[in-house]
Design a protein around this nucleic acid. Structure first.
Lengths: 155, 155
DNA sequence: CCATTTTTTGCATAATCATGCAGTCTTTTT
DNA sequence: AAAAAGACTGCATGATTATGCAAAAAATGG
């Protein structure tokens, strides 16, 4: 559940002004995540979120706004959520951990890879339609490399 | 002493890897500032410093890397440290609070104003040499406006 | 210079956050 | 499949940070 939870955290801090981990915890629990403050603290550290201030001086959790950051989190996702990648002709099929397909698919979309017509994600499977088989092959090979090579950011 | 202290804080967190306010406090005290953690906490809030992580995963205090930030702190400095501004021919003379001249001068330098040949700062006085009297007049007027208009960032 | 207002600070403490340890669950290895 | 290694989490608690309040200090206005 870690990825889903962290995705939710990201969504929460982007849409709401959350100034303590306890508050974040509450919202998470409202969304059905049954965790404790300790876990939230660890998530925040792992995701490298920071406590900033909103305009009115109240504290607020946020992401560091560096571009690398996004790339890193994508890499992280691919490295840790993707189980298997294969293709048949123009179609790439990605198997992910349960519930992670949506997130991985979003990360994939964000890379705006050329030759990709579109993709859809179920619960643990993604279909990616490519224009040519060559594109599919390239995608599979890239994803496999990332899924293996990538490692979690330093703790 | 607040400005001097905050300048020192900036210097410290830029040159060293400081991960708690207590550590910062110690270094400040080594430099002769006799304050408590409460004050450090308030300074950090006012300066909008954030707790990030260094590459090895340890926490570290840092500035938010936004460009506005610099401008803001310059404005803040000018608004709060400058006492008086005047000029005679090509020379602008700025009076600041005691000990603040160096800091204000640095902020001024950073603006890279055209027509300014150079500037030197003592303890509470700055001399700015300009190419023409017109430049001097403009500078005086700008500085006066900033010294009055500017206010501290929202708490 | 004295009175008044504003700013800054320390103290004490409440609030918040981080983490060692042990238990559980998952993955990998043999 | 059993054993071993690793990942994830809660609990309890220690560490760290924020802040209400009162006092001190500094700026402001007569």
């Amino acid at each position: 559940m870690k990825f889903l939870r962290q995705s939710k955290i990201l969504e929460l801090i982007r849409t709401e002004c959350i100034d303590t981990q306890s508050e974040l915890l509450e919202k998470l629990q409202e969304s059905g995540f049954r965790v404790t403050q300790a876990t939230v603290s660890r998530d925040i550290k792992e995701m490298r979120l920071i406590k900033t201030q909103s305009a009115d001086g109240r504290y607020r959790y946020a992401c560091e706004p560096t571009a690398e950051n996004d790339q890193e989190s994508h890499a992280y996702l691919l490295a840790n959520a993707v189980i298997d990648v294969d293709h048949t002709q123009h179609l790439v099929v990605i198997k992910t951990k349960s519930g992670m397909a949506q997130a991985v698919c979003a990360a994939l979309d964000a890379t705006q890879r050329s030759g990709v017509l579109g993709s859809i994600a179920g619960d643990d499977t993604i279909f990616v339609a490519t224009r040519t088989e060559a594109v599919a092959v390239g995608l599979v090979s890239d994803l496999r490399r990332q899924a293996e090579g990538g490692s979690a950011p330093a703790q």
